[in-house]
Amino acid sequence: MGKGAPRISNDIRALRFARGEMTQQALADRIGVTRQTVNAIEGNKYSPSLEVAFRIARALELPLEKVFQYEED
């Protein structure tokens, strides 16, 4: 993150609901982070490491670029 608006955004909240209303806690347990971290990622308050980003995509059974979007300046 850093200065200005976040450049990495995501659709995790919508994708969780699309996958049988998966809870934040269920996703957190599957990817090995706390529920508060999933909440921070969804709110664009934290950009996860590449490893966690891949784990999220895998848990949602989607390619990485369907979950995360990188916005050019």
Binding site: V33, T34, T37, A40, P48
Partner: peptide
């Protein structure tokens, strides 16, 4: 009781 920590912590 959940005292997990992760990369964000």
């Amino acid at each position: 009781p959940r005292d997990d920590t992760d990369e964000r912590d």
